[in-house]
Structure formats: C-alpha cells, structure tokens
Design a protein around this nucleic acid. Structure first.
Lengths: 340, 340
DNA sequence: CATTGGCACTCCGGTCCGTGGAGTGCCAGT
DNA sequence: ACTGGCACTCCACGGACCGGAGTGCCAATG
C-alpha cells in the first residue's frame, strides 16, 4: 500500500524537519527511518506529496519542508499523542501547588508553560462573565466616601470608590451592605448586575436612597466592565532568541502581536470552544501577519470555558509534545481553581 | 579654548551616532555641525578624546563611536534636558487619566512609556513596605473557611484563605473583623503587622481564640510576603525589532533579563535613590550580560520612594528625550497615586 | 505497476579575489 | 593652534568560481 507509506514519509519529514530545522532530503530520510525502500522511491512519494500541497521545496535541488497543510495533516492524523511523563506531572504539580492567589496561579502557569514548551506562553485571566459573585463589601473610608470591594468566585477582586452627597450612618451602611449582598452573592455576574438593578428600580417610597443608587451604579459598572476581560499574561519571550535566523519573518510579527493583546485574545478565544486542545497553523485564520507561527491553546476552568491558555511558536514546532504540555497545564489549573 | 571644543565634538559625535547608527567621521562632523574648523583639527581632537577613553574606533580608517565613558560624560555634562512638549504632556494626561485602579495605572504607564520612548518599558508595582493598610475584610465562605482581603493605600489587594477548626458564629466574625481593623487600618504595613501580632500575644484569658490566631497569622504572613514586591510589568518588547542587527549581542541578553525579573528589579531598585532620573550605561554595575544596554529609570510615588519605573534600551539611545519622558511619566503617575 | 540504480542538471553557500571609498595619522606650512 | 596635503589602511561590496547536496527523469527489473 503505497498511500500508507506516503503518509509515513510525511510524518518522517515533519519529525526530521522539526528536529533539524533543515530541509530534509530523500537520502537522509531512508537513513534515519527504517522505511525499507530506496531514496528514489521516496523521491517519487515526495513529488506526489508536493503535488498535493503537503510539502514545499525552497528551491530546486533542496530538500522538502512541510507546508501548513502538511503540518495540519500531521497534527490531525499522524501524530501520536505524547503522554506526559510522571516527572512532568510532578513538576507541574509542585510548581503550581504553591500558588496563593489568582494572580499567582496565572503567573506560575504562564511561566511553567513557557518552560515546558520552550515557547512563548500566554494565559488569559478568568473572564468576568463566567464568574459568580462571592461577596460584596462596602467600607466607609470617610462618612461620605465609600470603598466597594467585589470578590468573585475565581478569586478576582475589583474595587471602586464612591463619593456620597450626604453622610451615611453606620446602620444604614450595614443595611445597604446586606441588601446588596443578598441580591448579588452567589449569582453569575450578569444576573447579579440585573438583580442589583432591580434593587433601585423598584420605587420604594419617596426616599429611594441616593447612597444605594450610587453604590449600585458603581457595582454594575464594575461588573459590566469587560475591559478587564482582556487581560493576559505572557512569558517566555526569551525563547524567541532560539530562532536567531528568520528574525524579520518570525520574531518581529510575533513581538508585535504580543503587544497587540487584542489579536492574542482573539486567537485564544477561538480555542475556548470544545474541550480539546486547538491548533492553529500558519496562515489559517484571518491573521496574515502571523503566517509563520502556530498557536496551540485550550480552555480551562469549569467546562474549559472560563478562559484560555496556550503557546505561540513557529509552525516548525514539536506539536505532540506541545499539545501534551498545554493540555496537562490546563487540566491542573482547572483543578486548582476548582478547589479554591 | 580647545578643551571646550573637544567637548562640543564629543557631544556632536554622540548626537550623530545616535541619529545615524553609524560611526561618524571628521568630515561628516564639520558638515553637519557648524564647528568652524577644518576636519584635520577635528581629527586631532578625536584622537585626544580616544586617548582619554571617550571614543572608540571599530577599526583603523573607520569613524568614531562613543564609549560607555563617552555616553556617561554626555549624559552628565553635555546634554541639555529636553523639555517635554505640551503635546506630550497632553498625551500623557489623557492616556493616564482614564485609569480605574492600580493595575490599570501600572498597565497604562508601562505602555505609554514604551510608546513615548520606543524602547522596552518597565514599571515596578508599588512595594508593600511603603504602603498603609486601608481596610481588612474578613468574609466567611463557609462556617469554617474564611477569606481575608487586605486592601492597601496604593490600591493593591492581597487575599488569603484560612481554614478554621471550629465553626465561627456571625457575631464572633464581626468582632474579629472590627478588632483586626482597629489594629491595622491606617498603619504602615510593618506597623500593622506588629500591631496584629500584639493582638494575639496578649494572653486574654484562657480562651485565646484559635480563629483570631489563625487570621492574624495569615495577615501577618501576607503583609511580610515580599515575594509580591517583586512584581513588574513590561511592555514594548516589539521595539526590540528595531535593532534587527546585533541580535545576539543586544536582543538576546535583554530578552533573558526581561524574563529574569530579579535582575530588572535590582536595576530599577538602584534608581529609587534620590529624586532624579538615574542612568546606568552599558557595563556599569555588576550585570556584564547587559553590557550593551542602558537603563533609564526613576522612582515614583511619595518621595519618589514607592517604586520605580523606567526603560531599558541600547546604549546608543536618545538620552535627553528618554530621560524627559521617564521623568514626565513618573511625575504624572505620582500625582495620580496621590489623588486616589 | 511499483521499485530501483544511474545520470545529468540545478542551485545554494562558501571562498577568494579586486576595487572603490571613507577615514585616518602625520607632517610641513602658516 | 590650526590647516592642507598626502600616503596608508581597512572595510564593504560585487563578481567569479566551485563543491556538494538534492532533484527529476529514464530505462531496467521483479
């Protein structure tokens, strides 16, 4: 069955090219892999694979290099998932178990991921919209100045200041606090916002208190502030130094994308759908400036839908290993968030 | 006075070299600057400056390039401080005024700084040790599980979990909360920690409550957790793409330093002393791996001692402009922190 | 029909000149 | 102290050259 061998050839080429960073020729292939055929046969297969668009030749008389389509086939059908070793699992556990708060979890995850994959790692902070409200605290800094603290289930904390027109007595403050908490605590953030809205919309006599109104307004604003959904953390840019060649084509656009967090967020966002690890290769998708880089990402948190994490690297990368690392870290992070 | 002219020559060389990125020769110098002498004279001056260690010749028959020592002299004595334009000031104001919380201030500052200087910008989060406690919140997640939220004057929030051995009644919780706040609120963080310590050290009968002890312990631990002093934020790495040449010598070590935040923190730390903008040039200081980069930084916050911000870039940079930008941003950030 | 050995061909990458130009150092003159 | 002149140095650049790796094709073979 020569069709089968062709796929074996493609797999071998991807593996060799990833390992050596050099176009791979027919002779080298038969030497390194036991294909039991002659170089000439391989050449025929290569030519066929090139016709079908899986391989590319930088120039006549050079070896072959996988195309995006080639990598795609490799990832989808040819790569055996590399299971994480117990050593890796132990490393992940010991690295992440020491985290004390949400910031710390994100911080450690991103650094860990960068270290494991030797690529640029990206972790998105848990999005507001999927969080529930754990507690709302109202503190009087002065009689007319309140501090609102909004504590979410993910461990995230938002704070806002509110200026009042008139003094607020202690018992009024306590009443306000408990009413707000009653309405919001335990709710999904969107539901909490509307519940709070109801709190002031009901005309409760003529003394609809200005303080309540101001507090609710500030809270709703904080809850619907999706600006903070857009926060991500990046690590491992030093790994870019490994591709000293192809600076212009690879490193520069990547650095720019890392600054333009919007692009990264979109890329990560696409990965949140479905439970599995998503791989975007080269020019797939609308971001032509990242045509020579791939994104390996997945969701994490409950239903893998809280937020995303992953890595960005050259299309020429060790997909099986990277996918395994991303998946392992995502699972562990999900577990930690679940526990806390 | 030929000594004076020599300094003018040095200044001109620094300016030209920064602008053109190429070694500058005697002929080009007299053309671009009105020095009113012949190239031969300049050559003599250059030779003298080279003997004194201010200039360097890549090879015979090439132009001159400033040495670290040359830049140092330029920065200390030859550069006229470039005042920020009103346009720049407006840009700073409009960019930073929208910030809603501490994270946001830091975020915006670092991006602004990167944009203004076209270098890699670094901002250190306000250090714990100079902050005062604004409020401590104790929330019962379950009867035996408490969430502590520590809010500092800078807007920073720390949180910790505490597990209790026995249930805690609501009124006990309220009492605990008010005692803790009484001791800590308004105090410098160090003082707050010791005041809290006193709270449990006094043997108040036999029922020295385990809950109090656990809470205080966690708070003191959070307050003395200098790990979080080490947080910094980086932006503008895309600006590294501008030196496409000298990748190995310039970009790689810089990327590594940016990952190794410890080094950055030390560099920034040195800049916190004294009110003015500090410039570290090339191999000055103990970090030989950053021998071709300079650091321009200054403190910010009250007394400029709260934390530091600045930029990292090649020794060949526009010092006057960069120093002005760093100073302007630091001042504005200080003002914002002061107001909030 | 798939496979194979042979062979001519292509093209890259490195090396080795040769040359032009920018810049210097020095010296003698003002 | 400054300047013009001059010989010298050295790099950067371009062209020529060559070895090697790799290919495509073809005829032969099981």
């Amino acid at each position: 069955m020569q069709e089968e061998r062709r796929l074996a050839v493609l797999r071998a080429i991807v593996e060799d090219y990833v390992a050596t960073e050099e176009p791979v020729g027919s002779k080298a292939l038969v030497e390194r892999h036991s294909l039991n055929v002659s170089p000439a046969t391989i050449r025929n297969d290569m030519a066929a694979l090139e016709d079908e668009g899986y391989l590319h030749q930088p120039h006549t008389s050079a070896g072959r290099v996988p195309t995006d389509k080639g990598y795609r086939l490799f990832v989808d059908r040819l790569s055996t998932v590399k299971p994480t070793t117990t050593a890796e699992r132990r490393a992940i556990a010991s690295f992440l178990d020491g985290a004390v708060d949400l910031d710390d979890v994100v911080h450690r995850s991103v650094r860990l991921l960068a270290q494991l994959t030797r690529q640029v790692a990206v972790v998105q902070y848990p999005t507001l919209s999927r969080s529930t409200v754990r507690h709302v605290e109202v503190v009087a800094l002065t009689p007319t100045r309140l501090l609102l603290v909004l504590i979410l289930s993910t461990g995230r904390v938002e704070q806002r200041h509110v200026e009042l027109d008139a003094d607020l007595a202690d018992d009024e403050l306590a009443a306000l606090r408990s009413r707000v908490n009653l309405a919001a605590t335990g709710e999904l953030i969107g539901d909490a916002a509307s519940a709070l809205g109801d709190l002031v919309r009901v005309p409760e006599g003529e003394d609809a208190p200005a303080a309540t109104r101001a507090v609710v307004e500030a809270l709703v604003e904080a809850m619907s502030d999706h600006r903070s959904d857009e926060r991500i953390m990046v690590a491992g840019t030093a790994n870019l130094a490994r591709f000293g060649d192809s600076f212009e084509t690879s490193v520069r656009p990547l650095l720019e994308a890392l600054e333009e967090q919007v692009i990264l967020l979109k890329l990560l966002g696409e990965a949140t759908t479905g439970g599995a690890v998503t791989v975007r290769i080269g020019a797939e998708g609308p971001y032509q400036e990242l045509s020579s880089t791939s994104v390996v990402a997945t969701g994490y948190g409950p239903d893998d839908a809280l937020a995303s994490l992953g890595i960005v690297g050259p299309t020429r990368m060790d997909y099986p290993g990277t996918m395994a690392a991303v998946r392992a870290v995502a699972r562990y992070v999900s577990r930690i968030l679940d526990e806390s």
